[in-house]
């Protein structure tokens, strides 16, 4: 340490030193790169579970966060070019699903029930005015939410990069975790 520094700090009162430390900490927090970034992992590929990651990512982006979604396993369905056909919901083993009439489990397993339940859910959501998955994807892209597909699960499921919608990036666990480390907000969905 230079002699002048010693002389200068020697003149500071304890109170002043504390004040300087507080100012420096405040400044460091302002510079914190993690502060304005959020990262979600979307792992589910049904219509109902396609909503949460897209809703949270767009709401986060609207609040000024740099958002990214890492799509892995069945979550890849959400950003597949055929997402409209791929995203379905099944009443089988889903006792939480609201039904217009009480339905015995055996009935929910009949052929055609998945199509019926999917149509019912889409109808319910659109009647209430919830944005469609397509609209949410458009908004996400407009707000520059990064959409990252997991390359490993793509390889396992036999997907090609061209199977996905425009603007999707590709990466692995290390890339996802690197994003997560810089984020104050990380959710696994």
């Amino acid at each position: 340490m230079a002699e002048t520094d010693i002389v200068q700090t020697g003149n500071l009162t304890e109170e002043r030193i504390r004040e300087i430390i507080r100012e420096e900490i405040t400044r460091a927090f302002k510079k914190d790169p993690a502060k304005k970034q959020g990262m979600l992992i979307a792992s589910k590929g049904t219509l109902d579970w396609a909503y949460p990651p897209l809703i949270l990512a767009t709401a986060g982006a609207a609040a000024g966060l740099d958002m990214s979604i890492f799509f892995t396993f069945y979550g890849l369905n959400i950003i597949h070019k055929d997402f409209k056909k791929k995203l379905k919901v099944s009443p089988v083993a889903n006792p939480g699903m609201p039904m217009p009439v009480p339905m015995p489990d055996i009935v929910t397993a009949l052929p055609g029930m998945t199509g019926f339940a999917t149509g019912m859910m889409k109808g319910m959501f659109s009647k209430k005015g919830v944005a469609t998955i397509e609209e949410l994807i458009d908004v996400a892209r407009e707000l520059e939410v990064r959409l990252i597909a997991c390359q490993m699960t793509m390889d396992v499921f036999g997907y090609d990069q061209s199977d996905f919608i425009e603007g999707v990036e590709f990466g692995g666990a290390a890339a996802a975790l690197s994003d997560a480390r810089k984020s104050h907000l990380t959710l696994f969905i």
Partner: peptide, 9 residues
């Protein structure tokens, strides 16, 4: 008429 997350978006 808009539902979450569209009003904040």
């Amino acid at each position: 008429g808009l539902l979450c997350p569209m009003p904040v978006v």
